[in-house]
């Protein structure tokens, strides 16, 4: 079959497809890039996930696939790709092949060949590129789909369209960027420390809003209706409770919680005591 080795990369409008990228994939790509073989320019790998009916591509998992690249040839280890896919299927059968990734900026010449290979695994594979070399001072992460340009039955080129890519950072946020962005974190934050950070951030936010509202009231900045509406909405979200009722409510909750703490501590004291008695009881 004639596969076009030329790449036509046109800036095109949104194609309706939206990619959702989970941070695990990003971490995996970075890791495989770091662990690439000597003198290897880039790494490629398979993307796993799901495609929903409305055209959203959920990129949830990935694995690196060894490959070899020379001037006009690309050899992808197909066996490896198959085995790895089978292994992944056994853990999460819902994740299917949806495309492939490579490191490097944008689309390069041999990508059409690899795209062609993945096109046999899945219709319309997604091609994700992560620029690990930071060529324009920031990691550009892009996703593409391709269409074939044909003239008659002769294939001319593969045309890559960029699609919209959402970073699903919620998972990373759950763990906390503080943990994921430093090269070394000595200690995981515990309950109270985490809360302390959150409260101080909250404090900062309130200060910001305070200042903003004051400025608007005193006419220092022009009022913005949208922000005002947001503020009014949030205010309305808080039910109005009479201070007395609130005090009562609050006291009750605090007492509940304190009682539970008390109980837990009592239990622990009991355990310590019981242990002493249990071992002492051996001297019969």
């Amino acid at each position: 079959m004639a596969s076009g080795n030329t790449v036509l990369h046109l800036a095109s409008g949104p194609t309706g497809l939206v990619g959702k990228l989970h941070p695990t994939v990003l971490f995996n790509i970075c890791d495989s890039y770091i662990r690439r073989n000597d003198q290897q320019e880039r790494v490629i790998g398979t993307l796993l996930g799901s495609i929903s009916a409305d055209g959203t591509v959920d990129i949830r998992n990935s694995y690196a696939v060894p490959h070899n690249e020379s001037l006009d040839q690309v050899a992808v280890d197909i066996d490896y790709h198959r085995t790895m896919f089978d292994l992944h299927q056994r853990v999460s059968p819902k994740e299917v092949i949806i495309g492939w990734y490579s490191t490097g900026a944008g689309v390069s010449g041999s990508d059409a060949l690899i795209q062609d290979f993945y096109g046999r695994e899945v219709t319309n594979p997604v091609h994700l590129t992560v620029d690990t070399s930071f060529s324009d001072d920031r990691p550009s992460i892009k996703a593409y789909v391709s269409t074939n340009l044909t003239l008659g039955d002769r294939q001319l080129a593969a045309q890559f369209h960029e699609i919209q890519l959402d970073l699903r950072m919620i998972e990373a946020e759950r763990i906390g960027f503080d943990v994921l962005k430093k090269t070394m974190v000595d200690k995981l934050p515990n309950d109270i420390e985490g809360l302390e950070g959150t409260i101080s951030r909250l404090h900062g936010m309130i200060d910001t809003v305070y200042r903003y509202v004051d400025d608007v009231v005193e006419g220092r900045i022009p009022p913005d209706n949208t922000i005002g509406r947001y503020l009014a909405d949030t205010m309305a979200a808080v039910p109005k409770i009479a201070p007395d009722a609130f005090d009562k409510l609050f006291h009750e909750s605090v007492q509940d919680v304190l009682l539970v703490i008390y109980l837990a501590n009592l239990t622990r004291t009991q355990l310590t005591l019981a242990e002493k008695l249990n071992t002492a009881a051996q001297i019969v």
Partner: peptide, 8 residues
């Protein structure tokens, strides 16, 4: 301890 590569 949690460590991350410089790239990540």
């Amino acid at each position: 301890k949690i460590s991350n590569s410089s790239l990540v």
